[in-house]
Amino acid sequence: MADDATRKAVSEIPLLKTNSGPRDKELWVQRLREEYLAPIKYVENNKAADNDWFRLESNKEGTRWFGKCWYIHDLLKYEFDIEFDIPVTYPTTAPEVAIPELDGKTAKMYRGGKICLTDHFKPLWARNVPKFGLAHLMALGLGPWLAVEIPDLISKGLITHREQQGS
């Protein structure tokens, strides 16, 4: 089970302090700074643990995020583009992460390729407002989703390895 690793990884992600959403002008800038710091630390930790698996960047306002995530299966690396908008009610509600290229390939997705999170993600997020940020969303939302869905999609032949990606 992936939980020991996930638990350790999440415990090492810095918690956020500013309770502010994209509609708050100055406070949002402060939150945005934290939103960048936390994933930077998380990515550093991942690299140190030889488990570097995503990159994120945003537009100038920090309202739209995009990046890549990758998943290693049988020594092959599968890479996907990810994207999401920061909802106006953030951080009370978590963003809905989308992997557009997988839209229609799995039932564990809503329209537009938005991943379908577990029943437990929302309570977990709600209990940790405003301390959880985008790094936590990656670790507790996208990471576990990929770990279950990607091997399944590969086994069904719905995604195939692209040779040029290297492993």
Partner: peptide, 11 residues
């Protein structure tokens, strides 16, 4: 009933 068959954690 967790459909992702993983342990959800509250750190």
């Amino acid at each position: 009933s967790c459909h992702l068959r993983l342990r959800c954690i509250v750190p």
